[in-house]
Simulated assay, not measured.
Amino acid sequence: MYLRKIDGPRAVTLPDGRMLTRADLPARDTGRWVASRKARLLLGIASGLISRERAIADYGLSEEELASWERLAARHGCKGLRAISIQKYRQP
């Protein structure tokens, strides 16, 4: 069996004991970002499974977009990442 060489780990163990692998991350051609996919990508970045720069390059995100997701997730959790909650969570 051949394993493609990648940068970083293939799997990480989260603090609650669950395993997060590269297969658990959203597909690279994701066009519709729902809250659960955003949260999964942020979890991968926070756990060291994928670097921030690699996520930006692979998923075609901007620095500002990813930073806003991180801010909203830190303040409001997964509910803050929902697009329908823009008025509720993104007011200054």
Rank of each mutant, 00 (worst) to 15 (best):
D16G: 02
M19E: 12
R52V: 06
R75I: 11
Y59N: 05
S47F: 06
Y59H: 04
S85H: 14
E53F: 07
E65H: 05
A67C: 05
L20I: 09
G60I: 08
W69G: 01
A67T: 15
A57P: 00
L81V: 05
A11Y: 02
L66V: 10
I45W: 01
G48N: 10
G80Y: 00
L81Y: 02
G77P: 07
Y2M: 03
H76M: 03
P15Q: 11
Q87A: 14
R22Q: 13
A55I: 07
R75L: 15
L43S: 13
M19G: 01
R10N: 10
S36A: 09
T13V: 15
L49S: 01
D29G: 09
P92S: 12
G48P: 04
R32I: 08
G44P: 02
L3I: 13
I86F: 09
M19P: 02
L72N: 05
V12F: 03
R4G: 03
I84K: 14
L72R: 03
S85Q: 14
R10L: 12
A27M: 03
Y89F: 15
L61C: 07
C78P: 04
L41A: 05
L25S: 00
K88S: 07
R32Q: 12
A39M: 09
E64L: 08
L66A: 09
R52I: 05
I86S: 13
R4I: 06
G48L: 13
A35P: 00
D58P: 00
P9Y: 02
P9K: 06
R90Q: 15
P15E: 08
R32P: 00
D7I: 05
L14F: 04
R22T: 04
P92Y: 03
G77H: 11
W69P: 00
G8M: 05
L81M: 06
A35N: 11
L14M: 13
E53P: 00
S36Q: 12
A67G: 12
L42Y: 06
W33Q: 03
G17N: 04
P9M: 02
T21A: 08
R32H: 12
I45Y: 01
P9D: 01
G44S: 04
P15C: 11
L25R: 00
I56A: 07
G48D: 11
C78R: 11
S62G: 15
G31N: 15
R54G: 02
W33I: 02
K79N: 14
S85L: 01
P15F: 09
H76Q: 10
R32M: 06
S85V: 00
P92N: 09
G60W: 07
V34H: 11
E53T: 15
R82S: 09
I56F: 06
R10M: 09
K88I: 07
P15K: 04
L43K: 08
G8I: 02
Y2D: 13
W33M: 06
I86E: 14
I50S: 00
L41W: 01
M1I: 08
S62M: 01
Q87S: 12
L72C: 05
G31E: 13
P15M: 10
V12L: 02
R10F: 09
Q87T: 12
L3W: 06
D24L: 05
G77F: 08
P15W: 07
Y89D: 08
K5R: 10
Y89S: 03
I6T: 14
I6L: 09
H76W: 13
D24K: 06
R54D: 13
G77I: 11
A83T: 14
R10W: 11
